[in-house]
């Protein structure tokens, strides 16, 4: 099998499991909603509070979604089974990554919609938001996939997930907030596309390399 077909097969398997069980998307989505609600409540729910609330809830939901992936590995040993198949481990990373990307984009779209309703946020600049969402999903999915594999064989792994994930993804949070604000006001985006691009490049290069040593038997 060629590399990309293996990638697609792994992604398809992950998404199929998710579709049947919905045990990452539903918990992560409802958690994101709860965070959005709480942040809206304490911030008074003005539209200028919307971008930080959106991105904080998305990041926290991503922690839950990626942590669920680690749980599934631990309970069912799916990663061990996949590692027995021939082929490069990098393909496994990219398959996983693709599946997490899809989940994150769904979460982001859902949370964005709710945020518009709850915060009465303007819906201008959707193109900017879509691009920002895509770029941040690429980076977040790379970090999430790597950390989920890393924490599978660590006691209290899901508890360590936020400790490592949130500080590491600070650049995505900051870039996302500023790009959302730029989209709403039509202001220039400044260096934030560059920040997202550098973050993505870094983790898309380092992620697969570290993934290989992390999943070694």
């Amino acid at each position: 099998m060629r590399a990309w077909r293996r990638v697609v097969a792994v992604a398809r398997k992950d998404l199929l499991l998710e579709w049947r069980g919905r045990d990452a998307l539903i918990p992560a989505g409802s958690f994101g909603l709860a965070v959005l609600l709480v942040l809206g409540l304490v911030s008074g729910g003005g539209w200028e509070a919307a971008p930080p609330a959106l991105w904080v809830s998305l990041l926290l939901a991503a922690v839950v979604a990626a942590g669920r992936g680690a749980d599934r590995e631990g309970e069912e040993g799916t990663l061990e089974a996949l590692l027995l198949y021939p082929g490069s481990r990098e393909d496994l990373f990219w398959g996983r990554w693709l599946a997490v990307c899809v989940l994150l984009l769904l979460l982001g779209a859902g949370l964005w919609g709710v945020q518009v309703l709850l915060f009465n946020a303007p819906t201008r600049g959707v193109g900017v938001l879509v691009l920002a969402g895509l770029l941040s999903a690429f980076g977040l999915a790379a970090v999430g996939t790597l950390l989920a594999a890393l924490l599978t064989h660590v006691r209290a792994g899901p508890l360590l997930m936020p400790l490592l994930f949130l500080p590491a993804t600070v650049p995505v949070l900051l870039a996302g907030v500023r790009l959302s604000e730029a989209a709403a006001s039509g202001a220039p985006a400044g260096p934030w596309w560059g920040v997202l691009a550098v973050f993505d490049l870094l983790f898309l290069l380092v992620g697969p390399a570290l993934f290989e040593v992390v999943v070694e038997a």
Partner: peptide, 29 residues
């Protein structure tokens, strides 16, 4: 040993990106 080595590499490479994003987040606004 393997996992913490991976985290140490990831953390150090991430730090410059964090630094510049915080600099810009504060100063440009």
């Amino acid at each position: 040993r393997r996992l913490s080595a991976a985290v140490a590499v990831l953390a150090f490479l991430d730090v410059p990106v964090v630094h510049y994003s915080v600099v810009w987040f504060r100063t440009l606004h």
